[in-house]
Simulated scan of single mutants.
Amino acid sequence: MLTTLSGAHLPEWIAEATDADLPGISSFAAGLHGDFAAVTAGLTTDWNSGPVEGAVNRIKMLKRQMFGRAGFALLRKRVLLS
């Protein structure tokens, strides 16, 4: 479902997962009902947060490289210049 964006098959998968008698999978499938509309939208649309996650990861890496060396002003310059 994740790679083919076929969120329409989610109700069938949830039914199979709850009937599987596997405690972890059954509780996960039951928890999907809590926000079913958001889960279905996430499995059917091609929107993702990949570019944002990449930018956050890059900023965190810069921050970790500078740990204990300088203040916020230098971190800001490194983020803006990179």
Results as ranks from 00 to 15, higher is better:
Asn48Tyr: 02
Ala15Lys: 03
Phe72His: 10
Trp47Thr: 10
Asp19Pro: 00
Phe72Arg: 00
Trp13Gly: 02
Met61Thr: 13
Thr40Asp: 06
Glu16Ser: 09
Leu32Met: 13
Val52Met: 06
Thr44Pro: 03
Ala38Ser: 10
Trp13Val: 10
Ser49Cys: 06
Phe72Ile: 14
Gly34Gln: 13
Gly31Gln: 04
Ala38Phe: 12
Leu62Tyr: 15
His33Ala: 07
Phe36Thr: 03
Ser26Lys: 09
Ala17Arg: 01
Thr40Ser: 11
Phe28Val: 03
Asp19Ser: 07
Ser26Tyr: 00
Glu12Pro: 00
Val56Ser: 08
Ala17Tyr: 03
Lys60Asp: 00
His33Gln: 11
Arg58Cys: 12
Ile59Ala: 13
Glu53Cys: 07
Thr45Cys: 02
Leu22Val: 05
Ile25Leu: 14
Ala29Thr: 11
Met61Tyr: 12
Val56His: 10
Thr44Ile: 03
Gly68Phe: 12
Gly31Phe: 15
Gly42Lys: 08
Glu12Cys: 06
Asp35Trp: 13
Ile59Asn: 01
Asp35Leu: 15
Ala41Ile: 06
Leu22Asp: 12
Ala37Lys: 15
Thr40Lys: 07
Pro51Ile: 11
Glu12Asn: 03
Glu53Ile: 14
Asn48Val: 02
Gly50Asp: 00
Gly34His: 12
Thr40Asn: 07
Gly71Pro: 04
Asp46Ile: 02
Glu12Arg: 08
Glu16Met: 08
Ala15Leu: 12
Asp21Gly: 08
Asp35His: 08
